[in-house]
């Protein structure tokens, strides 16, 4: 089947090795098969670090919880360790009670701040003002906590809460008696709003900046005002970024521990109004681990609570990060 015309590609012959010591390709030193396999694997091994860490966390928590101890009773409203009542519903509801309003406010302010700095303010001004919002992310939560507990709480108790009670007291949830100390749901929502604000603002701002300039300008050229372009063009275009901002902000507020433990009080009953004290899962776990020492049932209950918290925050993060995976080319604090 050989063609009469010599084909340099098909009829390629192995190039004869140049004889003598001046061979251009030095032969590779022979290696033992085991060493070869090992040197093939070793460079890949460190890449497993994050996955292994995640597995260690899950295995440790699940192992310590046993996970079959409590059944449906685990989601009841009664938490009373001395009489073996391990319902976590109070803390689960408490977590949502502080995280959802905090997310609402931080999204509201976040959209406002992002729109102000992308559409309205000159660049020079935003370069001065934006770092203040980013700075909020850098302040440690325990510093927020001591500031809120010592300085903000008395002000809340003496001024803010009575004022809100006087004006909004007719609404359900706002009618209860105010606390003179000021600690409680409202203060926790305030602190969590501040802590979630940098993440939501940053994400919304960057996704608004990623809206193509053509769209802004064609909107303006058609006679729309800046607000109409923001409202009808930019925000719909950036909706994925805004969506993920909501999820990541929620994750931040939901898992926050120390600041909440300092300002929320440590109630084991459901709060009756926005002024009442309550507790969240993270704060409760943090405060009670000491008492669980030597009591395997107690530790199992707390670990099971940790598993619930871990599942919720993993789900929130997976959903929130789907849209921004490669948006950021460098590290952003707290993101």
């Amino acid at each position: 089947m050989s063609s009469p015309v010599p084909d340099p590609v098909r009829d390629r012959q192995p190039i004869p090795a140049a004889a003598g010591p001046s061979s251009p390709v030095p032969s590779a030193p022979a290696r033992a098969p085991f060493a070869r396999v090992l040197s093939g694997i070793v460079p890949y091994l460190p890449a497993a670090v994050p996955a292994v860490m995640l597995i260690i966390i899950v295995v440790a928590l699940v192992h310590a919880s046993g996970f079959t101890n409590f059944g449906l009773q685990f989601f009841s409203l009664h938490f009373d360790p001395p009489v073996d009542q391990w319902g976590i519903a109070v803390f689960l509801i408490g977590s949502f009670l502080v995280a959802v309003p905090a997310l609402f406010f931080s999204m509201l302010f976040g959209v406002g701040l992002a729109v102000a700095s992308t559409a309205y303010l000159p660049k020079l001004v935003t370069q001065v003002l934006d770092p203040f919002v980013d700075l909020l992310a850098g302040i440690p939560s325990v510093v927020y906590g001591i500031w809120a507990f010592i300085i903000v709480a008395p002000y809340f108790g003496s001024t803010v809460e009575p004022t809100i009670h006087a004006y909004l007291g007719f609404l359900p949830g706002f009618s209860g008696p105010t606390q003179s100390g000021g600690t409680g749901i409202m203060l926790a929502v305030f602190i969590l709003t501040l802590m979630a604000l940098p993440i939501t603002t940053l994400l919304i701002r960057d996704s608004l900046r990623a809206v193509p300039k053509d769209l802004w300008e064609s909107g303006l050229a058609l006679g729309a005002t800046r607000w109409e372009v923001v409202r009808r063009v930019a925000i719909p275009y950036a909706r994925r970024g805004i969506f993920s901002a909501a999820f990541l902000g929620f994750g931040r507020a939901f898992g926050e521990t120390v600041a909440v433990a300092m300002v929320l009080g440590s109630a084991t009953v459901l709060p009756s109004s926005v002024y009442a004290i309550g507790n969240t899962m993270a704060a409760e776990m943090f405060e009670l681990l000491d008492s669980a020492y030597g009591n395997s049932q107690f530790l199992a209950a707390l670990s099971e609570m940790a598993v619930v918290l871990l599942i919720i925050s993993l789900v929130v993060n997976v959903v929130g990060r789907r849209f921004i995976s490669r948006l950021y080319k460098e590290q952003v604090a707290g993101l």
Partner: peptide, 18 residues
């Protein structure tokens, strides 16, 4: 691997303490 690193960053610190 990047996803799992991102999830670790999103894990609440109290979970790491546990």
């Amino acid at each position: 691997v990047r996803t799992s690193a991102n999830l670790l960053v999103g894990t609440p610190s109290v979970i790491l303490g546990y």
